[in-house]
Design a protein around this nucleic acid. Sequence first.
RNA 1: GGCCCCAUCGUCUAACGGUCAGGACACCACUCUUUCAAGGUGGUAAUACGGGUUCGAUUCCCGUUGGGGUCACCA
Length: 474
Amino acid sequence: MTSSPPRVRFAPSPTGYLHVGGARTALFNWLYARKTRGTFVLRIEDTDQERSTEEHTRIILDGLSWLGLNWDEGPLFQGESVTRHRNDALRLLGNNQAYRCFCTKEELEAQRKAAPKGSDTFKYDRRCDRLSDEEVSARLARGMPFAIRFRMPLEDIAWEDAVHGPIAFHGRDLDDLIILRSDQTPIYNLAVVSDDIAMRITHVIRGDDHISNTPKQIALYRALGAEPPVFAHVPMILGPDGKKLSKRHGATAVGDYQDLGILPAAMRNFLALLGWAPGGDREILTQEELIDLFSLDGIQGKPAVFDLTKLEWMNGQYLSLLPPGELIEPVARELERMGVGFPSRDDLLPYLEAVRARSRTILDVARQVAVRLDPARAELDEKGHNLIGKMGEGYAKSLRIAIETLAAIPEEQWDSERILVSLKERIAAEGMKLGDLLQPIRVALTGSTVSEPVNELVAVIGRETVLRKLIADS
RNA sequence: GGCCCCAUCGUCUAACGGUCAGGACACCACUCUUUCAAGGUGGUAAUACGGGUUCGAUUCCCGUUGGGGUCACCA
């Protein structure tokens, strides 16, 4: 069997932002294409003129690029192919595989309402399919508008889904669907099939929510004389409450995570592991490993809950692997956005090195750098607050001792080694415990009980600034 | 409600009839560190339920329950 390389597509409609679910679908398509040396096509489904905007198209393209999901063909716009869609519909009409439906939207609505309120789903009763040729001609002569309706075959429709295995629908449950509106514009299910045939798509990897469209589309493929592709239906992504992920869960757009300071490589890794696993214990995988290990049958059949905490953990892993130099630019931009002044981009490096290991996102890094540049920005967190409460008088006393000790170090000798030595000597002389002197300094300088070693913290902030802040707090 | 999909720790998952049901996040302890994290070590924690099939079921079949999706001249 000679098989040509697969052709897959990602086909978002530009009616909203690029959501994580869509991003993951795109990622799976991309991984499959790269794995099989196939072609990844990007198609923008903009047939809904009302809701589609160029702004959304741009955001989707930017999101894909940010994730590193480059496409080989496109972006193609579905709207540019309406003539072909229409011709396909007309062809089915000519074949007698479709018929004119003169029912108006209102009439259909009424029929739906009148349908027995019971067990079954409403199905169109095919009244227009029973119209005599004379009646049809008469209505056409009167200029009555009509839609084109596909005559759904009676037989059951089944396929072998690449993630779910065999799926079957009963022919009796399938409705005659409209494929061309009365204004001659195509309906989604026709446009998709027409485009996928024209683009020679071999594997349709898309969301689970399309399962119920699939039997209709398979029927259309057959009616159009084309072989249906392989279908792979990827389960949905859920919020922490088990409901479909949506705006009320907070950040759902790819851009939101970009703003949070998530690195694209971490996002890609995390998304790949949501609903897919390479088998074994692998968690952190490079792009190459992802491509190498990817396969459709490793995709989970059940929906997955999006766990932001794990994403942040994973981002922290990527952050610590990144050469600090690569953090300069994104952090500098974030600082500028925050309105924090700094001497130059190169001067940021020592701060980044100090702070990086304790950060999970770029935003974390920037916030901590900002505090080191200007300790006046420090805000007490809960643990810091507790510490001050617990120490009572001792807090201010420790700060006074710290001030005396540090003030005695001349500017020329202000380095982390010297600071450590001075602090230790003083601690010994006072008979204090190490933490009793160091923790108050840390809290006063950062607002938090977590930071790099105190001597390094003090060194990086600088003599004058440290003393000023400690005096202000004591 | 009809139709379709699904069901392993709180979450993401491994296991393709025989494992003390493994890993990761989170959580807890311990450890390392002259101080914080990180790291290291250990721990708590799962096969929804009921029937089959089988010498043996997380795994195969049926049912129940639960969750998700979908039912437009939207995509």
